[in-house]
Design a binder for these strands. Structure first.
Length: 271
DNA sequence: ATGCGGACCTGTTAGC
DNA sequence: TGCTAACAGGTCCGCA
């Protein structure tokens, strides 16, 4: 469930409960995620206070004075707060217990996510070092997209999904943003005008902002049972809608494969 | 440099 | 109804 909006929603949900709290113990039930969870998580984290929780792209970072925990939710990861007596379920791989009687629980059936320990500045970590700008900041601009795209033959959809170009644009929002901007997903990135990149830049920001707002309303309460998603389903214009009428022109939405990812567009509205 | 396919896993769904 | 295959919101890596 992790596109950038959900990661940000998760951050906002857990931060108020954990900032200033002290980690007491770490319980790893399944070490093998995308990479094995390092033993430092158990040896270093207990006793430390969480100073802040930030997000970089789809990575969450728990900061302490001695180092930081880097967490990625992969495709199926969920991070939520549970009470100490809540029994772990099948895919609850990690618990971090805090001094305020809260437990941060990591669940990930598919185990594409990761949890890492980093002594140094986490932004210098190899996974974070080369990431592109945050889409919701001014560093993500028309100028940036336009410059980065010159000479590139790659399809624009793959281009904006490349985390070195811009972080946080997953398959769903790439499809949606391109529809809103009226750009064909297969168009070569280097052959799109600055004016159209201006539209695309704004559409990416809009789509992510709106999704965060929606995620905020539906997932707000995930401290409890489980805020199931499905919330954005009704506001999707093209994603998952192949064969259905375009919301603008009523022509049938098409589906193709682009870089092994499902790609949806309206051939009438997107050129 | 760039692009492609494979890899990591399990759960759900579509199709036979 | 039951089995199998394809596919899923991510992204890194190695090879051509």
């Amino acid at each position: 469930m992790p596109e950038l909006p959900e990661v940000e929603t998760t951050r906002r949900g857990i931060a108020p409960h954990l900032i200033g709290s002290r980690a007491l113990s770490v319980c790893v039930r399944k070490r093998q995620l995308r990479w094995p969870i390092p033993e430092q998580l158990e040896t270093e984290l207990p006793g430390l206070v969480i100073d802040s929780i930030t997000r970089r792209g789809k990575y969450l970072i728990l900061h302490t004075i001695k180092g930081s925990v880097i967490i990625h939710l992969g495709m199926s990861g969920v991070l939520r707060l549970v009470s100490v007596n809540e029994p772990p379920q099948k895919h609850d791989h990690v618990d971090i217990r805090f001094n305020n009687h809260k437990v941060l629980r990591y669940t990930d059936p598919r185990r594409f996510g990761c949890i890492l320990w980093c002594y140094d500045n986490p932004h210098q970590h190899p996974l974070l070092r080369d990431l592109g700008p945050e889409p919701l900041t001014e560093s993500f601009s028309t100028r940036h997209l336009f410059k980065a795209s010159r000479g590139k033959k790659v399809a624009v959809k793959q281009f904006i999904m490349n985390s070195k170009v811009v972080v946080g644009v997953g398959n769903i929002y790439a499809n949606e943003a391109l529809f809103l901007a009226g750009i064909h997903p297969r168009r070569a990135a280097g052959r799109i005008s600055a004016q159209r990149y201006s539209a695309l830049t704004q559409c990416i920001k809009d789509v992510l902002l709106i999704a965060i707002q929606q995620g905020g309303t539906t997932l707000k309460d995930f401290v409890g049972a489980d805020g199931k998603p499905g919330y954005f389903k009704q506001s999707l214009a093209v994603y998952g809608r192949s064969g259905q009428p375009c919301i603008k022109c009523h022509q049938k939405i098409k589906e193709i494969r682009l870089g092994q990812r499902s790609t949806y567009y309206c051939s009438n509205c997107q050129k």
